[in-house]
């Protein structure tokens, strides 16, 4: 899919324009580009599936859709080594803390794709007593892929959108600014109290 084909939403391009308007340092800018090229082309998913969408994710790896073409086939079972979680399936009350923990265990930079209507809003189970109505209350979401379950093509499109999004990040000074531990604890008093 050529890059120009993403005609549906220009906000990412606008974001880039806005960011580069002020101008960037040549060396830093080029390095950033290199790193972003690497990151956007090497998105490793976490093996995580709760229900039906997970099976379509398996199909995505199979010969017909072959996500290996894009380099996404290195599904890591350990969250420390994965880049994004594809939340494929319903997240229920009991699963919510687990999902949150998995997200916390991912190493930065980390991304979340809400895949399927259950992950987006609760889907057909929205009115249930034991279902989270969308995962955005639990983890920050980067890309939403609608469908019940989404077709593998839609999933490919979703991950490609994520890949676009990764390209506009800035490594030097940007998202990767390291938070000092004291600073973090000051912002998160709960973590301190739990100790």
């Amino acid at each position: 899919m050529p890059y120009e084909a993403f005609k549906d939403n220009e906000y990412i391009e606008n974001l880039v324009k806005e960011l580069t308007e002020a101008g960037t340092h040549v060396v830093v800018g080029q390095l950033d580009k290199l790193i972003n090229w690497g990151r956007s082309n090497s998105l490793w998913p976490l093996t995580f599936a709760t229900s039906c969408c997970g099976i379509e994710f398996v199909s995505l790896g199979a010969a017909r859709f072959d996500m290996a073409r894009f380099g996404w086939e290195v599904a890591r079972a350990s969250p420390r080594q994965a880049d994004f979680i594809m939340v494929a399936g319903t997240i229920v009350n009991r699963m919510a803390p687990v999902l949150r923990r998995l997200y916390d265990q991912l190493a930065e930079p980390k991304y979340v794709i809400a895949c399927g209507s259950c992950a987006i809003s609760g889907g057909p189970f929205r009115r249930s007593y034991h279902v989270a109505k969308g995962i955005e209350d639990i983890v920050p979401v980067d890309v939403y892929v609608p469908g019940c379950p989404p077709r593998p093509e839609a999933m490919i499109y979703g991950i490609m959108q994520l890949s676009r999004k990764v390209k506009v990040e800035r490594f030097f000074g940007g998202v990767n600014r390291k938070l000092k531990q004291e600073e973090f604890l000051a912002q998160h008093p709960m973590a301190e109290a739990a100790k």
């Binding site: 690497g38 990151r39 073409r69 894009f70 290195v74």
Partner: peptide, 26 residues
Amino acid sequence: RLGPNRVGPLGLLQSVADMFKILTKE
């Protein structure tokens, strides 16, 4: 399957991209 074929010619740069990613990972 086809295997990596999008990054660089025949996907040859795929593992280079992976390397840059891993180098800058937390």
